[in-house]
């Protein structure tokens, strides 16, 4: 057929389909199963070694549990107090998730608003920065005066978490390929089409990066507010349990609650990393293996 590039006349270069990396180690090219095994096994060995020394020191020196509880005792407390701690964990997680979702919606929404209207950006951006640079520990007691406690905790989680989403989304919206912008203009794209089909997808890696930070920060915000609420608070989140156990010198429970908090933080980080990987694996550099 005339005017048709023949199928055989394709360029001499082959398509380079890349292997995708594992979601959690995007920067390393896998050098086989052995390497992967080491990456999992070594931290576990280190952990076991550390715990063994800890346990040994506590037993040999007869350190009392209210000074330093042994790992075994902490684990035992975690199981015996599970009902109480698990309920608290759910409370803190619920606050964290709500704060995170509000931060995601608020951060992306505000960034889009700023992008569409320079006047709004000039008017509001400085206050977003002020909200971010003022330490949340200092704001929390004030919020607790004016808002009911659950709402104050949620507000803290939101304040800490929304700024990275706002800042990253703003950066993404400003980093759109200018030729692609021209192309959209050439075909008469409306503002809505430009936003929906070009700016937002192009910003997705930035947005997801912001969300990954926001997930951890939202947990921190919730914990800070619960601590600030302290014994005055009617809430029963994990941070509240830590504060309460501190007053009662129930150190093993403090450690158990702390353990649950860090596990929750790790879980949030890995879940968001997984979402990031699933969303970007086919097109963005950050989610592709370095090896070709």
């Amino acid at each position: 057929m005339n005017g048709r590039f023949s199928a055989r006349s394709r360029d001499n270069t082959k398509p380079d389909r890349q292997r995708t990396a594992s979601p959690l180690s995007p920067r390393r090219g896998g050098t086989g199963n052995f390497d992967h095994m080491l990456r999992v096994a070594l931290p576990i060995v280190v952990l076991a070694f550390g715990l063994a020394i800890w346990e040994a020191v506590v037993r040999i020196e007869h350190v009392p549990p209210y000074v330093l509880p042994a790992p075994g005792l902490i684990f035992h407390t975690l199981i015996s107090d599970w009902a109480l701690l698990f309920r608290s964990l759910l409370v803190t997680l619920a606050t964290t998730v709500e704060g995170f979702l509000l931060a995601a919606v608020g951060g992306v929404g505000l960034a889009v608003l700023f992008n569409q209207s320079r006047l709004v950006e000039y008017s509001l951006y400085p206050y977003a920065v002020i909200l971010q640079v003022t330490p949340i520990v200092a704001i929390a007691p004030l919020l607790l005066i004016y808002l009911p406690q659950p709402l104050a905790v949620l507000a803290c989680a939101w304040i800490v978490a929304f700024f990275p989403v706002l800042a990253n989304t703003t950066l993404g919206l400003h980093s759109v390929d200018r030729n692609l912008t021209d192309l959209f203009a050439l075909y008469g794209a409306t503002r809505g089409q430009m936003l929906w089909n070009l700016k937002l997808p192009s910003s997705l890696p930035y947005i997801l990066g912001g969300l990954r930070i926001a997930g951890g920060l939202s947990l921190i915000g919730a914990v800070v507010a619960e601590i600030a609420a302290g014994s005055a608070g009617a809430g029963s989140g994990l941070a509240y349990r830590i504060a309460e156990s501190g007053y009662r010198l129930n150190i093993p429970r403090m450690f158990a609650a702390l353990l649950l908090l860090s596990v929750a933080g790790i879980a949030i980080f890995y879940l968001l990393s997984l979402a990031n990987y699933l969303a970007l694996r086919r097109w963005h550099e950050s989610a592709l293996d370095q090896e070709r």
Partner: peptide, 10 residues
């Protein structure tokens, strides 16, 4: 296919 999976000429 996605653009990332193609050669420069393609």
């Amino acid at each position: 296919a996605y653009p990332r999976e193609l050669s420069g000429g393609m």
